[in-house]
Write a protein that binds this DNA or RNA. Structure first.
Length: 276
DNA sequence: ATCGCAGCCTGTACGC
DNA sequence: TGCGTACAGGCTGCGA
């Protein structure tokens, strides 16, 4: 569920909440699979007394760099959320991992579908080493994108969703970027014209940057939807042009938006603006 | 390299 | 209201 803009919003909110500098005093894991590695016993020993030196993002991962030199990585997957609450407050039944901090606070990981994962590692590259470039990093150039696309015989949408190709795009922002570039999601990557490539590169960045400016996309009211720290909603839904807008008029030509399946993922397209 | 599928989980929406 | 079904924004491992 959370993609690059949502994860970026969580990281910014954690900074705002003053997470950097805080001390981790205890780890509690209530759903064992939430901690991918190491074992709970091992992690408790290594986390106790560590301070949070920095909070940053790589792709869809949140990285907590620790004073010990190690890093704690979090992937929210579909329904993961981070809460910062007083330890005295009763945790939610969906809080599966708790990090007791100083000042009587707790960082709590809430995740209805239980797909989210924590990784405590000596170096983040153990987890994020295979990720592709950051799409909104100024160091990521059109030239580089062009080279990466060369010779890719696969379908464009699954390729953009592949985190080792580019890091951070998910179903929402891929559909939005392809629509803005007027490219059908089933196009073969190496058949894009130079012009299409240029427009797609810009569209990809635009939808992500706008997503961040709007603090992410929260789709509905349900507890399974994206929320940032302390239940904060994102405002980017109003910015979506095709995603989950089946039957609504295309903002460019008025034709009803269609929902199709591409690479086993639901996809939203304007049949006129995005011809095959 | 690329594709398709099962699996990991729970909640929600919708048709009857 | 209840029941069955389909569906959900991610990712991994497997076989082809």
């Amino acid at each position: 569920m959370p993609e690059l803009p949502e994860v970026e919003s969580v990281v910014r909110d954690l900074h705002r909440a003053g997470l950097v500098g805080r001390e981790i005093q205890e780890l509690t894991v209530r759903w064992p699979r939430t901690l991918d590695r190491p074992s709970v016993e091992e992690a408790r020993v290594r986390l106790r007394g560590a301070r949070i030196a920095d909070v940053r993002r790589r792709g869809k991962f949140i990285i907590l760099d620790l004073s010990t030199g190690e890093s704690l990585l979090v992937h929210l997957r579909m329904t993961g959320q981070i809460d910062l609450q007083l330890a005295s407050r009763e945790p939610d039944p969906h809080h599966h991992l708790l990090l007791a901090l100083d000042h009587g606070e707790e960082l709590r990981f809430r995740d209805t579908r239980k797909f989210g994962r924590f990784y405590l590692v000596a170096h983040p590259d153990e987890i994020v080493g295979d990720l592709g470039p950051e799409p909104i990093d100024p160091a990521f150039t059109l030239e580089q994108f062009r080279t990466m696309m060369r010779g890719r015989r696969g379908t464009i949408k699954p390729l953009l969703l592949n985190q080792s190709f580019v890091a951070g795009l998910g179903n929402i922002y891929v559909d939005e970027a392809l629509f803005r570039a007027h490219i059908h999601p089933e196009r073969r990557a190496d058949t894009l014209t130079e012009q299409e490539l240029v427009v797609l590169f810009g569209a990809m960045r635009d939808v992500l940057v706008e997503g961040i400016e709007n603090r992410g996309t929260t789709l509905g009211e349900a507890s399974t939807n994206y929320l940032s720290v302390a239940g904060r909603r994102g405002n980017n839904k109003q910015n979506l042009r095709v995603f989950r807008r089946t039957g609504h008029p295309c903002p460019d030509c008025g034709t009803p938006i269609e929902r199709i399946i591409v690479g086993q993922r639901s996809s939203h397209v304007c049949p006129l603006c995005q011809p095959k």
